[in-house]
Computed example of a mutant assay.
Amino acid sequence: MWWIYALLSALFAALTAIFAKIGIKGVDTNLATAIRTVVILIIAWAIVLYKGAEHGMGNLTKINWVFLVLSGCATGLSWIFYFKALQLGKVSQVAPVDKLSVAIAIMLSVIFLGEPLTLKSSVGAVLIIAGTLVLIF
Rank of each mutant, 00 (worst) to 15 (best):
V102H: 09
I35H: 08
N30H: 13
I106F: 11
E54H: 15
W2R: 11
L8K: 01
I63C: 06
L49K: 05
T16I: 05
G89L: 01
I111D: 00
L8F: 14
A10R: 01
P96H: 08
Q93D: 06
P116F: 01
I111F: 08
I129C: 13
I22V: 11
I111M: 06
V102C: 09
Y50Q: 04
N59Y: 11
A34Q: 03
E115A: 00
T61C: 04
L88C: 06
M57I: 14
I40L: 14
L88V: 08
G124H: 06
F112W: 09
K62I: 10
Y50T: 07
L7W: 03
P96C: 06
L86S: 06
I40F: 11
V38E: 01
I18W: 00
L31C: 05
D28R: 03
T29W: 10
V27Q: 12
L88E: 14
K25L: 11
M107K: 03
V94K: 06
S78G: 15
S101V: 12
F12N: 00
C73E: 07
Y50C: 04
V69P: 14
L8I: 13
E54L: 09
F83K: 02
A17K: 02
S9H: 08
T61V: 00
E54P: 01
L133I: 13
L15T: 05
K84T: 12
G131Q: 08
A130Q: 03
S122K: 03
W45V: 11
F112N: 02
W45Q: 09
G23I: 05
A46W: 03
V27W: 05
V110M: 02
A103N: 11
V134M: 10
I22S: 09
K51F: 10
A53N: 13
T29A: 00
E54D: 13
I80A: 15
S92P: 09
